[in-house]
Every structure is written in C-alpha cells, then in structure tokens.
Nucleic acid binder design. Structure first.
Lengths: 208, 208
DNA sequence: GGGGTCCGTTCGAACATCCGTTCGGTCGGA
DNA sequence: TCCGACCGAACGGATGTTCGAACGGACCCC
C-alpha cells in the first residue's frame, strides 16, 4: 500500500471534522475545506462519504490495537497488563481523542458491508481485554462473565474520554492508576494510594 | 398542563424513532408515520424537530429523576441506596431504553437554549448520584472525586444499556447487584455471591 | 532539444434528491 | 359559524455526488 501522504492528510482532516461535528452534521464540503481541497478534489481521492468514515474508523482501530499490543508486551505481571490496557485506552482517547470519539458514536452509521469489518476489529480489541481480565481474575469467571466485565470497564473509560475532560497525555498515566484501582479493588477500598487529587483532574459532563 | 393524550402518543413515537435511528437519520416524515399522522398534522402539534427532541429528552429525564427519588426514599442503608440508583438506571434503560439511548447520544444536538435546560436536568441527576456515593464512601473523598466516581459508574451503566443486551425488567434487579458488587468491592473481590450466572445474561457489542 | 501526449491532480459549476417547514384548505363537532 | 384537528401539495435550502475542463509534470519520438 504505502498510501500517499496527501491521502493520510485527508483522513486526518476527515477524522477531526467527524469527531467535532458528528458524521451527519459534518458535510463533505467542510471536510474538503479542512483538507485544503475543493469538493470535487476530495472526491478524486475518495468514492463516498461512507468510505471516508470507514477509512477513519479502520485506521483508528488499527493504531489502537497496535498500541495495545505494544503496551501489553512490555508489561510483566497480569495486573500491570490491565493497567497498560487502561492507560493505552485513555492515551488514545486523549491524543487521538477525535478518532476514538468517532468510533464510539458513529460506527453504527456505516453501511452494512463495511460495518462488519469495523465490528471485527472492535471484537478483536475486546478479545484482548477478555484475556487480560482472565489473567487477573482470582476466581475462575466464565468467558461470558469476563466479556461483561470488560464491557463495564470500557464503559467507564469511554465515559471519561467522551466527556470534556483534560486531554493531556501526561494525565493518562496517573488517571489509569486511579481507574484501575477503582475497578480492581472497588469504591469501598479504604485508602489505596495517598495521591488522591488525581481523580479530581477530570470533571463532569457539562454543556456549552 | 395535563397534556393531551395524543400529544404523549406523538412523543412516544418520536422517542422510539429517535432511539432507533438517531436524531439526524430520523426524518419528520418517519416520526409522523409512526404517530399515525400526516406530516403537516405532526407540525400542528409541534413547532420544530428540535423541539420534538427537547420534549422527548425532557420527559425521559423527568421520569428518570422521579423514579430515582422514589427508589432512594424507599431504601434504608446507604449501600441499599446505591443499589437502588443502579437498579433504577438499569430499569429505565431497559423499559424506556429508547429514551435513555437518545439522552446519551443525541442530547448534544439540541440547539443551545434548550440544551441548557436538559443539561440542568442531567446535572440534577448526577447530583443525586454524588450524594449517594458520599454516603457509602468510607474515606472522605472530595466533591470532585465523588463527581468523577459517579461518572465512572454511569459510564458502566450506560455501556450496558447502550448495547443490545437483554431488556427484561426482571434482569435489572439481579444485574444491579452484580454491577453494584463490582463497583463497590472491585473485580478482585474473591467471591461475593454464588449466583454468578447473572452477569452472563447480557452479551457484548455486536453488529448486524 | 522540442513538440506532442498522456495522466494524476485539482477545480468551478451544476444536478438530483431529500428534508424541514409552510400554506391553503377540508372535515366535524360545539 | 367558529375552531381545533388534520391533510395534500408544494417551497426553499442544503447536501452528496458528478461532469467537463484546466493545469502541470513525466515520458516518448523525432
């Protein structure tokens, strides 16, 4: 492949616009302008608005999966692997927040043939999560239970990255520890770490 | 007020269509058809598509808040109150799943004046959650920490109700216990209850 | 080296369609 | 006769998409 540089620029622009405005509010004209291209020029590179969304989603999921595998390989203990998963997810949510937001909100808008492909990548990602959870699980939970648990965890993480929180990548590390601690030991855990100001870093779900 | 019955029928239809298709994909013609009304007939009752979304959201949030207050008043211990919150949220997500889905996905699409009103209701709901969490908190967490924690919890719950899980209201009770247990005691908790098949009730995030 | 020609890139302008919204009018009961 | 409920038909605008053409460098043949 080794796709042209112009091509990736267009995908970057499209991803940014999709994330900021949502698939249906974003117009092809707006995307073309963001890519510094005329409308017809955009259609020279891409056949369809749907294809544009697909490319953005596929690329984002690929880098997310790649980052995850890299982080998992570097971690030693099962617990560290879980922390790595959480941190990677948050980091991707902060740095490429644009793309991740599109993934969670707009991927169902894809036309069926391409949606299946994106769904497969999503499943692969969740599959990784299940294996990580299985390793830290003290009691032998069933696959379905682990599947549910990882969905709960991802729900928490997406709740963080979806809202207008802090977006510094530096926060991801300390934030991951907090979230991981809560997930592993629960809200009732007496007092895990003394650096408790971190959870206060991100706020709530506000409006404009 | 005591709004006419036809009016609430229209809101029901609109909420169902919004939930199934999303705000921008749903057309006023589709909503009119679902309400067994002509297009112009729909506009006799409602001035705007935006107003329609607002009414759906406002009504859903009102019933959610009302159900929550009712459940909270009936619960005795702080822990029971947290369970009640979780169960109410899940029940609303299952029975009126349509509306809740709209709340989490489409409320940002409202035009600014009405969006503020909905945001206020949202904040009121979260405020309830913060107070509930404050009561079960063993260490004295700050308001911001509690705020973050309730957002994490709601993220989990929305992750459940957003996906294509089981929608029977009977599941909500046992599911709430499972989720509540996980949130309070953590994933590492050795073995809380023996009835572990419940978490397996709901599946993952699939496609069509 | 020069003229000709292809081809990738880019554009302005339009086309077709769909969607939110409105207008004028009909019908039936008070 | 009035009035609210309801409808068929249209209007205006926005949006995804396409068409035909211009520009410019690469390559070829003489």
């Amino acid at each position: 492949m080794a796709i042209g540089q112009r091509y990736t620029e267009i995908l970057d622009a499209a991803g940014e616009v999709f994330a900021r405005r949502g698939y249906h509010v974003a117009t092809t004209r707006e995307i073309a302008r963001a890519a510094r291209l005329s409308l017809a020029g955009l259609y020279h590179y891409v056949g369809d608005k749907d294809e544009l969304l697909f490319l953005v989603l596929a690329r984002a999921l690929d880098t997310l999966l790649q980052s995850l595998d890299q982080a998992l390989a570097a971690a030693r203990t099962p617990e560290a692997r879980l922390l790595a998963l959480i941190r990677t997810h948050l980091e991707c949510g902060f740095t490429h927040g644009a793309a991740l937001r599109v993934i969670n909100r707009d991927w169902e808008l894809l036309a069926p043939p391409r949606r299946g492909e994106v769904a497969a990548k999503r499943r692969a990602y969740i599959e990784r999560g299940v294996r990580v959870l299985a390793d830290v699980d003290p009691r032998g939970r069933s696959g379905d239970e682990l599947y549910s648990a990882i969905n709960l965890l991802l729900g928490m993480l997406n709740g963080i990255t979806a809202g207008p929180f802090v977006r510094s990548a530096g926060d991801a590390r300390v934030l991951a520890e907090q979230v991981g601690g809560l997930f592993l030991h629960g809200f009732l855990q007496p007092s895990a770490e003394p650096h408790d100001a971190a959870l206060a870093l991100f706020g709530g779900t506000h409006d404009a």
